[in-house]
Amino acid sequence: MALRSSTRLGVAMFAPALIYIAAVVGLPLCLAFLYSVGDVRVGSVGYHFVGLDNFRSVLRSPTFRRSLANSFVFTIVTQLIVIVCANLLALALRDRFRGRGFVRFLVLLPWVAPISLGAIGWKWLLDSIYSVVNWVLVHLHLVRPFDAPMWLGEPRLAMASVILVHAWRMLPFSTVILLAGLTSIPKDIPEAAAVDGAGFWRSYFRIVLPMMTPIINVAVLFGVIFTFTDMTVVYILTRGGPYDSTQVLPSLAFFTGILGSDLSEGAAISVFLVPILAVIAILMLRVAQKAEVV
């Protein structure tokens, strides 16, 4: 049965997106699975199936286990910071005030600017020699010149630094989502609550926050995906150091697969992300659907 012309047009319009996703996402994903059960090196010319050997190998590596734990810490703490700050910013930016447009522009900048540029900027701010932060601390006589904090050199400070920089990067994204959610709440509901004597906090926690929950979930789930799969901040700021204390799975996969020449093991490390991300993606779709209904 011949397709109607509108159907053909629909298929034609949809095909580029489908091809794009298949080529840029589907194919690499399939290759990653294939590589993870093979013996592919950067210079190898054949393929041999090795079963789960690569997974056994990475599980024996303390660096992998540490990276797995770091990935969770990095993601969870970043998202906690982002959601709290995004809520505050969304509330602040909801009401009209002089210069609101400019402030919104500034808030959006970290998201709009390439992450590599932003991370390099932070690398200099936190540099061991030229850190502006340390310069201020030294000139305020809060620390001694040769004893300033090494933001990227102490394991805890380094983890805190990569988390804060990534939170800085993700904040605009979540703020915009929450701002959209906030402005969609009918004004008469909080106004009625105010007439009934509800103060700001009561109105916020009893009315605004529950109504915002689906949209917050969307922001969190997107944020989790973006954070779990990100290696730019870690790679530029610390390269996984000091001694792997900020190494996360994506950066370890890069170091092992590309720099270390073992594509299969790099793929096996990456594939560890898939079940976690799949669960998050399913959750995300369900929550998004729920938000749509709301």
Binding site: S128, I129, Y130, D147, M150, L152, G153, E154, G241, Y243
Partner: peptide, 21 residues
């Protein structure tokens, strides 16, 4: 030494000695 040695990239020690540190 100081913990800065854990933060370095390949150019850091160049900068450190050139800066007089």
């Amino acid at each position: 030494e100081t913990p800065e040695v854990f933060t370095w990239d390949p150019s850091s020690n160049n900068r450190g000695i050139l800066a007089g540190r």
